[in-house]
Design a protein around this nucleic acid. Sequence first.
DNA 1: TCCTAACAGTTAGGATACCTAAATATCAAG
DNA 2: CTTGATATTTAGGTATCCTAACTGTTAGGA
Lengths: 148, 148
Amino acid sequence: MTTNQADDALLALAQSFREALRQSVYVMRRLDSEEQLSSAQLGVLKMALDGGARVGGIARNLGVKVPSATEQIIKLERAGLVKREADPDDSRAVRVAATPAGRAAVENADRRRNEFIAGILGTLSQAERDAVQAALPVFDKINNSVQN
Amino acid sequence: MTTNQADDALLALAQSFREALRQSVYVMRRLDSEEQLSSAQLGVLKMALDGGARVGGIARNLGVKVPSATEQIIKLERAGLVKREADPDDSRAVRVAATPAGRAAVENADRRRNEFIAGILGTLSQAERDAVQAALPVFDKINNSVQN
DNA sequence: TCCTAACAGTTAGGATACCTAAATATCAAG
DNA sequence: CTTGATATTTAGGTATCCTAACTGTTAGGA
């Protein structure tokens, strides 16, 4: 039946997709292992760049629970990369802002990581890069589905 | 200059790609959180299906160090999903083989995870699925580059 | 034959990131 | 002014990974 064929194709794609996911985790780990700033911390730091991210928002955006975000924020604070200050409008809340050192750290980390990945992407054919390019927005969409 | 333009494009693609990687980690975590078998364990178990995977091979294939593989293997053994036996040809080595229960566990876990992902893929347009499909081999290639 | 270097795996110890539950403080509505 | 909801932190625990050190086996000379 047509439906089952469609399902089978979908399941086969899902299987391959899962394989790619597993690999992504591995690539991410490699990327992290060469750096001082973990990707979790880099994620927090980037959200603190605009000057007033709240802990809950950071956690939501990062796909982790609030205590996990707090943990990273504390580490960054101890490293002098962000500062925490009371939200003037809501004393329950905390605003996390990158310090100048934090800003510099983001730029450095981002650049190095991008160069590493760009180095790999540079070995691909243009068609392959186009394929990646075309898939990225879809990945974004998939993530949002999962985010739920 | 042409070279710099190409570099810039590559770096921009790298940036987007990294964003997708970050999301992948998140999706993977979600996928894992709903299951009994972690994806690390599922990976080990799959390699044990053919009956005689060695610890070192499993570690290499999984992109982790040998002690990390051992750790997962021990957990699987305690759960009755694999058994360890001496390699008849080389007494230093250990052969890891899935038990019938292990085999069943893989099938179950794989099916459930594939269905979860297929459910998401099913909400996409055909063009979007094609884009994913086309990008998967490239992801594979990128992974192999990183594996180094 | 025996020694030694290389190799396969396990054990021990430690780091990191994540989670849930409980505690603290503030806000907002009645 | 009380009470329930909200924002964050603290406490405690889990999983995965890592490096270094240890045990046992193999293989290639001297």
